[in-house]
Design a protein around this nucleic acid. Structure first.
Length: 495
RNA sequence: GCCAAGGUGGCAGAGUCCGGCCUAACGCGGCGGCCUGCAGAGCCGCUCAUCGCCGGUUCAAAUCCGGCCCUUGGCUCCA
């Protein structure tokens, strides 16, 4: 059993050999909290979530860090908009919370740390100082730039040649730089009104003064550059040398290239051994993005489709392949999820229906589950092929349906095995939730409303002390296939 | 223009690293049958591929090599 990973650094699929299998260091390049997250972001999150879950499942110890960029001119540009807040920090806090809510709604496993730029400015300053001392960066007019010509390997991640590169950064920086491809590590002063207004909604009054938070530094008041934050936070919370760096494909250059340069120049060590780049989610032939305005927010998607369908969608194309978002692909994801869920429920019902000591044996079902476990593992080991992993589970679904259709007495052990496969692989690794998931829309929604009505009546009976009536309602619901469970928060049910 | 990644059936999407179990997985769609009071779900069978184009290597290529065409991303904030 060997894990394989496509590595942008080498351009090849490599066997995965973490430096310490007990403590695999994974950094997911998070997002700038200047707007609600959309499905493109969610694709990255879900894919990196599944990577972390699978590695854990496969026996590795994983330390996962995912950052929030909460210092950025696009955030500044929204100051004063609606009720977002009057400072950069308030706007950032608003969208950070929104993203955290989205991540919870998508059933993402918690990362170990979610560092924010605003809380790591001292580490960033230290790193910039180190780079200046080592001769890789220079101060110019209160700003600090990385000297790309000083770092021999510059361009190795994205395949760029320094001499061929166009200028990086806004026009205003060019005069301060030695080489047009040099990039800012530290920017003097706050965000200029011009830079902020470039991203500002046209309907809002333009900003007139320099704004955004600034910090004291050896070079005067200023703000960290974009790329340096990830180097500083990855080093702080993981190590100078990490195992896996995951991010969106649109960040290969310049962001990740610059991270490599900064980190490796500062430490003299290789920064990340495996660079995984999740290809983009496209709609209408172009990438889904905030700036293009062609996005579907995570919140809306979860509300409309349910977390399981969204996850099924985002896991239905392997991360090395760009994905199309369309009505057809969403429809397919719905069908695939429902097929899986129904088979799971059938297996649970059938298992409830037989005694544990039942003697029936169905060799086909047992073999199908065993094969599926192997296929699932093989797919995940082969560069985290999530589509193949789902397919393996759907094979179990077919086998369960076949078994239940064909027999009056069921193979208890085989059913339990199938249920465990659904829960451990579909639930534990792919992050689906088989129970307590309330699907929104259509007949199910109406049925749920009706059940809620009955439960309200039952609650009134309970409060009045009429437990016989309440228990009768519960029994009758159970007979209808609705399992009622009383919790601290009131009664819940599942169909 | 330069850099990178891709082009597989009606759709979507595995397989390409290590050429032959690929007569191309899984699913959606379409057609027929079983089941069913009806519907849905489910089951069975069928439908559907010059695997971008051209050439080469080989007994054998979706898979390897060369050229070309097209798409997407990056080179400006971007997952």
């Amino acid at each position: 059993m060997t894990q394989y990973v496509s590595n942008t650094l080498s351009g090849e699929r490599e066997s995965f050999e973490p430096r310490d299998p007990e403590n695999v260091l994974v950094y997911t390049c998070g997002l700038t909290v200047s707007d609600d997250a959309h499905l493109g972001h969610a694709r990255l999150w879900v894919q990196s979530d599944v990577v972390a879950r699978w590695l854990s499942h496969a026996g590795y110890g994983v330390r996962h860090v995912q950052n929030f960029t909460d210092v950025n001119e696009k955030i500044v540009a929204r100051v004063g908009e609606d009720d977002l807040g009057d400072t950069e920090a308030e706007v950032a806090a608003h969208y950070t919370q929104s993203v955290i809510d989205d991540m919870r709604a998508l059933n993402l496993e918690r990362a170990d740390v979610y560092p924010r730029v605003s809380e790591h400015v001292p580490e960033i300053i230290d790193l910039v100082e180190d780079l200046i001392e080592a001769g890789y960066a220079y101060e110019s007019n209160g700003s600090v730039y990385f000297d790309v010509t000083s770092f021999e390997d510059y361009g190795k991640l994205s395949g760029q040649d320094v001499e061929e590169l166009d200028a990086q950064g806004p026009d205003g920086e060019q005069a301060e730089k030695r080489h047009p491809a040099d990039f800012a590590l530290w920017k003097a002063g706050g965000v200029s009104p011009a830079d902020a207004n470039e991203h500002r909604d046209e309907d809002l009054p333009p900003l007139e003064h320099e704004c955004g938070q600034t910090w004291a530094s050896p070079w005067g008041e200023g703000r960290p550059g974009w790329h340096i934050e990830c180097s500083a936070m990855a080093t702080t919370h993981l190590d100078e040398h990490i195992d896996v760096h995951i991010g969106g494909q649109d960040l290969v250059f310049p962001h990740h290239e610059n991270e490599v340069a900064q980190s490796e120049a500062a430490s003299g060590e290789r920064f990340a051994d495996y660079w995984m780049h999740v290809r983009l989610l496209e709609t209408g032939g172009e990438k889904m993005s905030s700036s293009l305005g062609n996005f579907f927010t995570v919140g809306d998607a979860v509300e409309e489709l349910g977390a399981n369908v969204v996850r099924m969608l985002l896991v239905s194309t392997s991360y090395t392949q760009r994905q199309t978002y369309s009505e057809a692909t969403v429809g397919e994801a719905e069908e695939r999820w429902e097929r899986l869920e129904r088979a799971y429920e059938r297996a649970v019902d059938a298992a409830d229906d037989v005694e544990a000591y039942a003697k029936v044996e169905d060799g086909d079902l047992r073999a199908a589950v065993a094969d599926a476990r192997e296929d699932f593992a093989a797919a995940m080991e082969d560069d985290f092929n999530t589509r193949g992993a789902v397919s393996a589970l759907l094979e179990v679904a077919t086998a369960v349906n076949r078994h239940v259709d064909a027999h009056d007495a069921y193979d208890y052990r085989a059913l339990v095995d199938a249920i465990e496969a659904f829960e451990a692989l579909g639930g534990g690794v792919l992050g689906f939730q088989f129970e307590g998931d309330s699907e929104v829309g259509g007949d199910v929604s109406i049925a749920e409303d009706v059940v809620d009505l009955v439960l309200d009546v039952r609650e009134e009976e309970r409060e009045a002390g009429n437990y016989e009536r309440a228990d009768d309602l519960r029994d009758r619901l159970e007979a209808l296939g609705v399992t009622v469970e009383d919790t601290d928060d009131g009664a819940t049910f599942r169909l």
